[in-house]
């Protein structure tokens, strides 16, 4: 079984993330870059399957700047046999449609029985890439799964939506996205960290994949402006001396909020 896990390096949500007001792109210098937690959980689901099925070949795949190599190595330290790192300055600021085109080309090149991704990244938060890949790869999509069962020739799971949960299944090959309801990732062992340094990482450009990143004859989504919201100032803060509930009621009523 060949499983490709899509991973993404994102600005750490524990810090104050910043956006360049000039380009509208994430400022990668502002806070530490980390492997997105939801991707760690997706990887863990695959590693747990591989623990039981030693014949599993796990490939990590990411489209990210050269600087993301450290994050790729950290992910390799958790498990997986190799990684594909698509790194190309021409892809800086690529929109979803182009990103999907690039990743679909890379997935076709690498080959897969199963593609697994986090449901949505914490930075872009689109949650649309897995469905786009399913379309481009002509594979069934099983997106937003809060539980997954992988069998030799099929995959099934629980899809969580705003209205309830559905039981879904499909034969392989398929594209799956997993939510943060899945268990947290294991901690990398020292052995894993050492082994990760020697694991093969293939570096590819858009051109290697036969994708023209500079086409002007296809529509692209662009950021036309970006602005920072003024920071909130703290207002009144009182310490309860027995009448705080009453004071708060008066505040809400005076501000027509009650």
């Amino acid at each position: 079984m060949n499983i490709v896990v899509l991973i993404k390096e994102v600005p750490d949500t524990y810090g104050d993330r910043a956006l360049s007001l000039e380009t509208g792109l994430a400022d990668r210098e502002a806070v530490d870059a980390v492997l997105d937690e939801v991707d760690e959980r997706a990887l863990e689901a695959v590693l747990a399957y591989a623990d039981e099925h030693p014949q599993t070949n796990i490939v990590l795949m990411t489209m990210a700047p050269e600087s993301a190599m450290a994050t790729v190595r950290k992910a390799l330290a958790l498990g997986a046999s190799s990684a594909v790192h698509i790194s190309d300055e021409l892809l800086l600021g690529a929109d979803l449609t182009l990103t999907a085109e690039v990743l679909a080309a890379a997935l076709k090149r690498t080959g897969f029985d199963l593609v697994i991704a986090g449901e949505k990244s914490t930075d872009g938060s689109a949650g649309m890439l897995p469905a786009m890949l399913a379309e481009l790869l002509d594979a069934p999509q099983l997106t937003s799964l809060s539980a997954v069962t992988i069998a030799d020739d099929r995959v099934a799971g629980t899809r969580s939506t705003e209205y309830g949960t559905a039981t879904v299944s499909a034969p392989l090959p398929a594209v799956v996205s997993l939510t943060e309801a899945l268990p947290a990732a294991r901690i990398a062992s020292f052995k894993g960290v050492m082994a990760a340094k020697k694991k093969p990482v293939e570096t590819l450009t858009a051109a290697d994949l036969g994708v023209d990143a500079e086409r002007y004859d296809v529509p692209r989504s662009i950021v036309v402006s970006a602005a920072e919201r003024p920071p909130r100032a703290a207002g009144v803060k009182i310490v309860d001396e027995g009448d705080a509930g009453t004071q708060l009621a008066e505040y809400l009523i005076a501000n027509r909020l009650a």
Binding site: L96, T97, S125, M128, M132, L133, A134, S160, P219, R220
Partner: peptide
Amino acid sequence: HSVEGRDAAARFAARTGAAVSVD
């Protein structure tokens, strides 16, 4: 931008090559 809405929009955009503005 619900789970189903964004899934459908995503596939449609991928199929037609449209640009997407999300959320």
